[in-house]
């Protein structure tokens, strides 16, 4: 650590912050599912991994533009998750859902192994960097940070300003009372769940520009999003973004200290956090 000069230190930190933004994006979507919709989705990470793979193949082999690809990907994620929510999750108890989603996760992960092999794939984008006072900033990462912030802001605006968004908030707060207003609560939950999957698909596209992907990557991201949304406080979407930044930052620092044990230290920090403040950092800001 002693050999590290200040600009390289800053470089690593800023890079951590940028990846943290993408972490924040998918964690917000996870937090929304778990905290607001009360769906314990263990297949979350695997769907994220699949989106990364599909983006990889779109870019490397399929030669379809990013826009048609996005439409197809978002559309299919939306439809699949709507159907999953409607026919499976909404009717069952939490622990049954945990097992079912676990099964789905296994299917996706192993299908990826079977079809794409367990060899890690990376887009291998040649990264353009800008240098400010010796600090290197990768443009791709910077773009991803802003993109995730914008997407989340958009989602927040959607929840706060549109009829559909307000309806979702009403159902999330009290399903029964919402149905008294003539709202078909179950349909709204299915819709909200699907929206969280569209966010997930978008995170996958962004994530693969930063990291390589392999079939087991889902487990790691699943765990990350769990950590992040616990630290933020369950269901707190905006908080999840900020704790995503925090975790990205922290990962960068831990990697400087010891890349070998970064994950282990991260986990210990998480355990200590759970003991000290199990309700999360940003709970005060959330609804009362």
């Amino acid at each position: 650590m002693g050999s590290l000069d200040f600009p390289s230190f800053m470089t690593i930190l800023i890079s951590g912050l940028c990846t943290g933004g993408v972490y924040g994006l998918f964690s917000s979507s996870f937090s929304f599912q778990l905290g607001a919709l009360n769906v314990a989705d263990f297949s979350f990470g695997s769907w994220l991994m699949l989106s990364m793979y599909l983006t990889f193949f779109m870019y490397k082999e399929w030669n379809i533009g990013i826009i048609p690809f996005g439409v197809i990907l978002f559309g299919s994620y939306f439809i699949i998750s709507f159907l999953m929510s409607k026919f499976i999750y909404i009717k069952r108890k939490t622990d049954d859902n945990m097992i079912i989603t676990m099964g789905i996760s296994l299917i996706i992960q192993n299908a990826a192994t079977l079809l794409f092999s367990s060899y890690p794939r990376s887009l291998g984008i040649i990264e353009k960097t800008i240098v400010v006072g010796g600090v290197q900033i990768t443009i791709t990462k910077l773009i991803m940070l802003f993109l995730s912030a914008i997407l989340l802001l958009g989602f927040q605006l959607f929840l706060n300003k549109t009829w559909t968004g307000k309806t979702i908030r009403a159902v999330v707060q009290n399903k029964e009372v919402a149905s008294l207003m003539g709202i078909n609560s179950n349909r709204v939950i299915n819709l909200a769940f699907s929206l969280s999957y569209v966010m997930l698909a978008a995170s996958g596209i962004m994530l693969v520009t930063l990291f390589s992907v392999e079939p087991t990557a889902g487990g790691f991201y699943q765990m990350m999003s769990f950590f992040i949304c616990i630290i933020a406080g369950l269901g707190n979407i905006r908080g999840a973004f900020f704790s995503g930044l925090l975790i990205g930052f922290l990962t960068a620092i831990l990697n400087i200290i010891s890349s070998q044990f970064a994950m282990v230290m991260m986990f210990l920090i998480f355990v200590i956090f759970l003991v000290v403040k199990p309700t999360g950092l940003f709970t005060a800001k959330s609804r009362g």
């Binding site: 009829w163 307000k166 309806t167 908030r169 009403a170 707060q173 009290n174 029964e176 009372v177 919402a178 008294l180 207003m181 003539g182 709202i183 609804r287 009362g288």
Partner: peptide, 26 residues
Amino acid sequence: ISLVPEGRMLFSDMTVLENLQMGAYP
């Protein structure tokens, strides 16, 4: 048919206007 539930049961993180708007959902 409208039910004004026991204990009011407002959408607490919403404004008055938003609460009323939810009633106009249909």
